[in-house]
């Protein structure tokens, strides 16, 4: 791994005024900017590019890193300004715990909100997903994607129901805003956790402006400090 390998970020396309419509991609892009690493973006949004079938994918020279965790680990290695190495061990562990909280609770809530809220699915999610493939293949692929997401949600929730999933997301947001308090950042200076939380909050607020059932966005808006924090993180990088 050379330190001058050009970095290409394969991500879901931009939308809602954000650099990517997908939180994990947005978080990685924010982290890259925070670490001041030069990179180019591929907005094709083709998940099959990735060996694991997930975006974001970082391509650095010959190396590939797919998914938020591996991408972040790579950025941390390349980070010369030491933005990501400023935390103490204890803070690092707590950041890790909060990040996995976000990636499970908010991710699952997001999936439910997009794919299983009937009118969101018909009005936005399905047309957007289906537009990437030709008819009639898109009908089958959307059906299969929905089925896979249902199986994923079932691994965590015995009953895939709105109340349970949103309640879990709400609890996670409570914990995050309690940790943030009145500070500008989760720790003394901006860190990977700020990128991650801000990305999820921004995506959910962005999608809430478009989806007919804004349930999850309403929950997020109930945490004004997190909303302000997300704006602060993204503004920092303009």
């Amino acid at each position: 791994m050379a330190d001058d390998d050009p970095i290409v970020l394969y991500q879901h396309p931009p939308g809602w005024g954000l650099a990517s419509r997908d939180a994990a991609c947005l978080a990685v892009q924010t982290a890259l900017k925070l670490a001041r690493l030069p990179f180019t973006v591929n907005n094709a949004g083709n998940t099959a590019v990735s060996p694991t079938g997930e975006l974001p994918l970082l391509c650095a020279g010959e190396e590939l890193f797919s998914g938020f965790g591996p991408c972040l680990a790579y950025i941390r290695n390349r980070d010369t300004s030491d933005v990501f190495n400023a935390l103490t061990d204890e803070e690092g562990a707590s950041a890790k715990a909060f990040m996995s909280l976000v990636q499970v609770e908010l991710q699952y809530a997001k999936i439910y909100w997009y794919w299983f809220e009937e009118d969101n699915y018909t009005a936005v999610t399905h047309p957007r997903f289906a537009s990437r493939f030709a008819w009639p293949l898109n009908i089958f692929l959307a059906w299969r994607q929905q089925r896979d997401y249902h199986a994923l949600l079932s691994t965590k929730f015995e009953q895939v129901s709105a109340e349970k999933i949103y309640a879990a997301a709400s609890t996670a947001l409570d914990a995050l805003s309690a940790r943030l308090g009145d500070s500008d950042w989760f720790f003394a200076s901006p860190s990977a956790l700020d990128c991650c939380v801000a990305a999820y909050v921004s995506e959910i607020l962005g999608a809430g402006s478009e989806l007919p059932t804004p349930a999850l966005a309403t929950i997020v808006r109930g945490h004004p400090t997190l909303v302000a924090h997300a704006q602060r993180v993204l503004a920092q990088l303009e």
Binding site: V8, N42, A44, N46, T47, A48, V49, P51, C59, E62, L64, F133, A134, L137, L141
Partner: peptide
Amino acid sequence: CNTRLLNIPFRASMLVREQAGHSLLS
């Protein structure tokens, strides 16, 4: 036919990788 490039080696050319995914030939 529904074309998909499968089993692309991990270190494959990105030019090949970018063509992976579902596509429909009619």
